[in-house]
Design a protein around this nucleic acid. Structure first.
Lengths: 196, 196
DNA sequence: CACGTCTTGAACTGATCAGTCCAAGATGGG
DNA sequence: CCCATCTTGGACTGATCAGTTCAAGACGTG
C-alpha cells in the first residue's frame, strides 16, 4: 500500500476542485474530499496540507485553467474586439454547458461566501477574482477603445460574465444566457463603431 | 421571565435575516441566530420553527421587502422606461451603499449555495429569484418595447442587477458599479429610441 | 392570593466537523 | 534477503452542529 505515491496529483486536484466547485468551501467536508479524491485523510494532509491549503490550490488551479482560456479568447482583440468579447463569453457559456463540470463558478461563489472564509483565503479569492477586469480592459484598449470606455466596458463585461454562473445555477436556459450576453455584445459593437 | 412574549417579531426576523444575509445559510449556526436575535434556542424553535423554516421566512421577508421597492421603481415604466430601469438599479445600488445592511444579496448567494440546501428550500430560493425577470419584462413592455426585446432586456437587466451584489462583495467601488449599470442603461435607451 | 399556562434558559443528545496519531505494510536500496 | 522509509487506513480528540427536553418562574385569570 505504500512506499510510492498511489495517486496522480492532477487527477486528485481536479477531483478536489470539482468538489469545492459543486458544494462550496463550507459544505465540503474532509470526508467529501476523501471520497471524491479516493485519498485517505492522512494522505490528504501529508500531500496537500490542511483544508485551507487545498482550497487555495484548487482556487489557483481554477483561475489558471480558465484564465488561460479567457486570455486565448481575447487574443484577437486588436483585430476584432467584438469577436474577442464574444469568444470571452463563449468560454463561460461552454463551461456552463459542459456536463463534466458543475454549474456555477468557483470564484463567484467563493467571493459571495468570503465573509465566512478565513481572512487570508478571502483576500486571495478577491485577488484572483479581480484579475478579470484588467484582462478585459487591456483587450478593449488593444481593440481601439478609448481609455474611459474601455474601463467602463471592462467592468461591465466582467460583471455580466460572472452573472452567467449565477443565472445558470438559478435555472436560466442557454437561450436566456445568450440573450444576457447579446445585449452586452450589441452595446459593445455600437460603442466601437467609428461614429456614434 | 415568561407568560408574555418577550420580543418583537419584526425586530427578531430582521436580525435573523441580516445574519443569514451576512454569513449565508451554511455558516449561520443556531447559536449565531440566538446571539443575533437575543432569543434562546427553545424560543426560536417554539416561535419560529427549525432552521429551514426560519430561513424560508427570512427569504420571503427579503423578497417582499426589496420586491416592493423594485415594483415601486418600475411603476413609471409606461411613461419613462429608461428612468424606471435606472430607478430599479438604484434600489440595488442604494442597498449596497447602506451601511445598516450587509454587502451581497441574500437571494444571489442562496442560489449559488443551493446545491448545499435541502431540495425544498433550494426550490423556493429559485422561485423567488425568478420573480425578477417577469417583473422587468412587464415593465419594459409597458414602456413600449417589443416582446422579443423586452424578453432579452429583462433577463439581461436581472442578470446585471444580480451581478452588482457579487461585484460589490468582491470590492468593486461605487463608481465601478455605476459603470456596470451605465452600459446597460445606455443600451436600453438606444433600443427604445424610435428609429435604430 | 392561588393556580394553570406559557415563555425561557440551560443542560443534554447524537451526529459531524477538522485535524492528529500510529501501527500495518508495501517499496526499493543495499 | 533484510531493513530503513514512506504511504496508507482507521481510530481517536475536542469542538461545534441542529434539535430536544425540562424545570424554573413570570404572567393573567379567577
Amino acid at each position: 500500500m505504500a512506499g510510492k505515491k498511489q495517486f496522480d496529483m492532477d487527477t486528485v486536484l481536479d477531483a478536489a476542485m470539482i468538489q469545492f466547485w459543486r458544494s462550496g468551501y463550507a459544505d465540503t467536508s474532509l470526508d467529501d474530499l476523501s471520497r471524491a479524491t479516493g485519498l485517505n485523510r492522512s494522505s490528504i494532509y501529508s500531500s496537500l496540507g490542511d483544508k485551507d491549503a487545498l482550497f487555495l490550490r484548487c482556487l489557483d488551479r481554477y483561475a489558471t485553467r480558465y484564465g488561460d482560456k479567457f486570455d486565448a479568447a481575447l487574443s484577437c482583440a486588436a483585430e476584432d474586439p467584438v469577436a474577442a468579447v464574444r469568444a470571452f463569453f463563449d468560454v463561460t457559456l461552454g463551461r456552463i454547458a459542459d456536463p463534466a463540470v458543475p454549474d456555477g463558478c468557483l470564484m463567484a461563489q467563493s467571493v459571495m461566501a468570503s465573509p465566512a472564509l478565513s481572512p487570508s483565503v478571502a483576500e486571495h479569492v478577491k485577488e484572483l477574482f479581480g484579475l478579470q477586469r484588467p484582462r478585459l480592459r487591456a483587450a478593449l484598449k488593444a481593440g481601439g477603445m478609448s481609455d474611459e470606455n474601455a474601463e467602463d466596458f471592462a467592468v461591465h463585461v466582467a460583471a455580466v460574465n460572472q452573472s452567467l454562473a449565477v443565472m445558470g445555477r438559478a435555472g436560466a436556459s442557454p437561450e436566456q444566457l445568450r440573450a444576457i450576453v447579446g445585449v452586452t455584445v450589441d452595446a459593445l459593437a455600437r460603442a466601437l463603431r467609428p461614429v456614434g
